[in-house]
Nucleic acid binder design. Sequence first.
DNA 1: GATAAGTCGTGATTAAATTCACAATTATAT
DNA 2: ATATAATTGTGAATTTAATCACGACTTATC
Lengths: 212, 212
Amino acid sequence: MDQNKIPQATAKRLPLYYRFLNNLHHQGKLRVSSKELSEAVKVDSATIRRDFSYFGALGKKGYGYNVEYLLGFFRKTLDQDELTEVAIIGTGNLGTAFLHYNFMKNNNTKIMMAFDANPEKVGKDIGGVPIYHIDELEEKINGVQVAILTVPASVAEGITNRLVDVGISGILNFTPARITVPDSVRVHHIDLAVELQALVYFLKHYPLNTEE
Amino acid sequence: MDQNKIPQATAKRLPLYYRFLNNLHHQGKLRVSSKELSEAVKVDSATIRRDFSYFGALGKKGYGYNVEYLLGFFRKTLDQDELTEVAIIGTGNLGTAFLHYNFMKNNNTKIMMAFDANPEKVGKDIGGVPIYHIDELEEKINGVQVAILTVPASVAEGITNRLVDVGISGILNFTPARITVPDSVRVHHIDLAVELQALVYFLKHYPLNTEE
DNA sequence: GATAAGTCGTGATTAAATTCACAATTATAT
DNA sequence: ATATAATTGTGAATTTAATCACGACTTATC
């Protein structure tokens, strides 16, 4: 709650580290070096050491990092034990993909409910998550802190306003609309079309080594 | 093909600018200032001016930017007229979401085909895109430059190797696996679980203004 | 033990991106 | 015409992130 000194770039990599440490732990590995981890997560080893160092001296010189210790440390740091409740708004293919994704494996987040405007979907549940009608948003969403917005762009702004009014803390916005929220709400945009176009642009303008 | 001087951060924002300029054009707007655009795309206005300036002096002082001119310029710059062929690997919910997304509206990319291991899906088509069996990958994928990888993590590495062998240029990887490719292939990772966890981490550790 | 090999943590450096701030120019109003 | 307001383009400053490079320490080997 106080670690405001951790760079944002580092914070974004933490969940990635956490997942790979989990993998290593399941594989029975006891120790890992920044070099090994670097190859697995595709992040420079000096960057990994720097990232870890913001949390203190977690490793041992000449040895590396103890997987179990590091994992336990990150579990605490990423608040793995404190649950964040999530709602999916819009159960099209993208929303449904989230519902099937088993987030609880590595995460401190739980998808509690989903909303949709289609009466045929309402009342059913997907992967154990109940689907309510979007009209019931205000009534049902109590306690949810994060919304994953997977609705058509045309209704994104209206639903965002309702989420804000109901006191949501964060929104993961998958719609192409750039939604407007008060400063008290954090929004991360993931724009699939932009990601694809950006990749294409890089391919055309930033040639890579062609010898293998 | 030669504009290697454009910062990567700028390149990533270009598709976003392009889409919003398109919106403005459809709304009949003739001019736009960096300030207006800033509010729409949520990027600082000085950053927008700086981004545009890499392409020369596109605006007029005291006036702003001519929407039609700017749009035409970006169309050329983003190679809107030169088509990049795309394949979807894995037609689960996420892959299907892409198939339904009408990329052709703003884009220079076309989804030509999809692959899946499930015989029930093979032979059908979704949104006009044919679905082939994954065993036919090598035979069918000719001419495709970009693959969108939406398969289970367990098969990600194997399929990646086949894509590399077949000469793919870019991969948009939605699996949690950090795939390994030769330097000649560009990979962008979009890791949905990491995005969600990072948002949660920011909410807990980087408090926002709570007064509205 | 003594020596060699491995690895961290970090000061210093470099690179990349953002933001400030203002002269120059254009548009608009009177 | 003239004055006022708007807005760009960019040099300079700042901020943020990545990388280099090495001393200090640990482990493994003989």
